[in-house]
């Protein structure tokens, strides 16, 4: 099949005579092709590539290579098969689920695409990575990363949006930690909920928010469980958790945990290597600045 490169930035591959296009992503050490078909496929693929610009395969290799370190453990983990997510524009969901995303509303399809790319990458990396439901930001020079753990809709994306511009952005959704202790970036768009869109999240390109990919190897320097309380004022309350408390608090916020070899031992070693986890109760993301500064200021 002909897959000529469309000129312009970012790269999108056009496939065949019927309108179809492919956006090659590299996320969580996994190659995931977004295969778009139907009316407007090329334009939609360009939008996907623009929103996912830090994760487009040929560009994401730099961030991954840096994060993997000189040994290149990231590239080693990415040598497997290419997974794919199919999008059919203009289609309607009929019959039994076949794994193809169909729809006509761009925002809704983009949101579901993000969810499906996340599921696909997590499925591919289960057993290889210790994956936490978390956002992460790092010191741009040392790679010391703060891992911000929270259930969906409770502050990860907001924290990345508010605290990210002065740091390297790693993800607002899933932190994947390799066996060598480095983090596999998941450089997805920032998912932002707008009240006037009936619960549909807007997938915002990281560049629009001043977020950049890491350029050095990145390792967790501290793990923070976020507990946002709307309307809370004053300094955040920071509570250190011992290893066992942290394990029971973090396990429910993990992915693929039960299918990972000795995940509790792995997580306990990570916790104790990074000084343990803390739970922080706070009102607004800006209140987290001192804590995030302190963690990202640790030597990695």
């Amino acid at each position: 099949m002909e897959s000529p490169q469309v000129t312009g930035d970012p790269p999108v591959e056009v496939a065949g005579e019927a309108e179809a296009a492919v956006v090659p992503l590299h996320v969580l050490d996994t190659d995931v092709d977004v295969v778009v078909s139907g009316p407007g496929a090329t334009e939609f693929a360009r939008t996907v590539a623009q929103r996912w610009h830090l994760a487009v395969a040929e560009l994401a290799g730099g961030a991954d290579g840096a994060a993997a370190g000189a040994e290149g453990s990231g590239s080693e983990a990415s040598k497997g098969e290419v997974a794919s997510v199919e999008v059919e524009l203009g289609g309607t969901a009929q019959g039994p689920p076949d794994g193809v995303l169909r729809g006509t509303d761009e925002r809704a399809v983009l949101q579901r695409l993000t969810q499906e790319v996340t599921r696909t990458a997590i499925r591919a990396r289960t057993g290889d990575l210790l994956m936490l439901h978390a956002g992460a930001l790092a010191h741009p020079a040392t790679g010391a990363a703060v891992v911000l753990v929270a259930p969906g809709g409770t502050g990860k994306s907001t924290a990345c949006r508010v605290l990210g511009p002065e740091r390297a952005y790693l993800t607002d959704e899933t932190v994947g930690i390799r066996r060598d202790g480095t983090i596999a970036p998941y450089l997805k768009p920032i998912s932002t909920r707008r009240p006037d869109w009936g619960g549909v999240k807007d997938e915002v390109a990281p560049s629009e928010l001043g977020l950049v990919a890491p350029t050095v190897p990145v390792r967790p320097a501290g793990i923070v469980l976020l507990r946002r309380e709307d309307g809370r004022e004053g300094a955040p309350e920071v509570t250190p958790l011992d290893t066992l408390e942290a394990l029971t608090a973090l396990a429910p916020e993990s992915s693929g945990f039960m299918n990972t070899e000795r995940p509790l031992t792995w997580l306990a070693e990570l916790l104790e290597a990074t000084g343990g986890a803390v739970r922080v109760t706070y009102g607004g993301a800006e209140d987290l600045v001192p804590l995030v500064d302190e963690i990202c200021g640790r030597l990695s």
């Binding site: 011992d242 290893t243 066992l244 394990l247 029971t248 039960m258 000795r262 995940p263 509790l264 031992t265 306990a268």
Partner: peptide
């Protein structure tokens, strides 16, 4: 499947 023991207590992974 996995067990972490600290002091006299433990966290275990069993039955999912």
């Amino acid at each position: 499947l996995d067990e972490v023991v600290r002091d006299d207590e433990a966290v275990v992974l069993v039955g999912g």
